[in-house]
């Protein structure tokens, strides 16, 4: 199974500074804070999933690791943050970092074994790891709370100043700050030679290794970095909701995040930022419309993206912008 990722708009020679489009997206996200003060909890939730999708884009879009088990790292991050708080470590920022490191350690340990695989075997093994962790968490009730989840945790104010509020004001800005930081990090990575190496690995592992490059080491590192970000997203969910439910490890979460990324556009980082709000808002609205049949809407949306807008939302936007600048799709001036 070869995933086709289009690199439109990505060039090895891009400057490492934040591009305009990212600044616009984050400005809009900041505007949400003032325009929808009563929907900030949902907005924080969307931000967390954008971060989760960003982590998947690093693995799938950059390095070509097709996975159906990314919720494993999201879940490990969430549980770690929960355990830390319950054990008395209530400082949120270090909690997030530790959670991310735990998820990265898991990926670093799994990577050398599973990343030798490609295509369908890789998908099935990542799925199996995800299911295994879910079932383990389900059985180990003394550790995870099982079906009831972890609850009763509290966190100290962010930086010791910003109290958590039920309106989600702190939550949202806190999540947005992490998202911006992670996005900047990922952007730096894609414009570095490691980013180019990862795209090389994605396109042709054989050629990469015959050019003197240790493919497995690069894949493992990318996987661990991706897991770190997924773990951060999981920890943020635990901290903003003060609860860790079993579903953080579910296969459904892995699928959700994949859908978000495909919808937004794989392989450019922006896909995660664009896909999360669109997917989760449509999901929210269609659930209100019909709590039983909402999946139909999502299904139609995916079919539409696959048929007419392969590059997802990012792909469509990119084409529109290029057309308006009078450029042909392959980047040559007209």
């Amino acid at each position: 199974m070869k995933i086709t990722v289009s690199s439109t708009g990505l060039s090895a020679l891009d400057r490492p500074r934040m591009p305009m489009i990212a600044l616009v997206v984050f400005a809009l996200a900041l505007a949400v804070f003032f325009v929808f003060p009563d929907r900030l909890s949902l907005a924080a939730y969307i931000g967390i999933f954008a971060l989760f999708a960003l982590s998947l884009d690093l693995a799938l879009g950059m390095a070509g690791i097709v996975t159906l088990g990314h919720a494993a790292f999201f879940g490990v991050g969430a549980y770690t943050a929960g355990w830390l708080a319950l054990a008395g470590w209530q400082e949120p920022i270090t909690g997030v970092v530790i959670s991310g490191l735990c998820a990265a350690a898991l990926a670093g340990a799994l990577g050398p074994f599973i990343l030798r695989l490609t295509g369908l075997p890789l998908v099935m093994v990542t799925l199996a790891v995800g299911v295994f962790l879910f079932e383990a968490a389900n059985k180990l009730t003394w550790l995870t709370g099982g079906d009831d989840g972890l609850y009763g945790m509290t966190f100290s104010p962010v930086l010791g100043i910003f109290e958590w509020s039920i309106y989600g004001t702190t939550d949202y800005l806190y999540v947005l700050a992490w998202l911006a930081l992670a996005f900047y990090g990922c952007h730096r990575l894609t414009t570095s030679n490691f980013g180019l190496a990862l795209r090389g690995v994605r396109e042709n592992r054989l050629r990469m290794s015959l050019l003197g490059s240790s493919v497995l080491a690069q894949l493992t590192l990318a996987y661990a970095l991706s897991a770190f970000i997924a773990g951060v997203a999981g920890a943020l969910l635990a901290q903003t909701s003060e609860f860790v439910g079993l579903e953080v490890l579910s296969v459904e979460k892995s699928i959700d995040v994949l859908v978000i990324l495909v919808l937004g556009g794989v392989g450019h980082l922006y896909g995660a930022l664009l896909g999360a709000p669109v997917y989760l808002l449509i999901k929210d609205m269609s659930k209100e419309w019909n709590p039983h049949a909402w999946m139909i809407i999502i299904g139609f949306m995916l079919v539409f993206v696959m048929l007419v807008a392969r590059g997802g939302i990012h792909g469509v936007l990119h084409k529109v912008i290029e057309r308006s600048r009078g450029k042909l799709p392959n980047g040559e001036p007209r």
């Binding site: 086709t4 990722v5 289009s6 690199s7 060039s11 090895a12 020679l13 730096r188 990575l189 570095s192 030679n193 490691f194 980013g195 180019l196 190496a197 795209r199 090389g200 994605r202 396109e203 042709n204 050629r207 990469m208 050019l211 003197g212 490059s213 240790s214 080491a217 690069q218 590192l221 970095l225 980047g331």
Partner: peptide, 26 residues
């Protein structure tokens, strides 16, 4: 590397040559 530009294709071996096992400088 099919999906990369010709220039990027050319840069990868140059990096790999200069940095040995492709130094992972992110």
């Amino acid at each position: 590397f099919g999906d990369l530009s010709v220039q990027e294709n050319m840069m990868i071996p140059c990096f790999a040559k200069r940095d040995g096992a492709f130094q992972m400088n992110a």
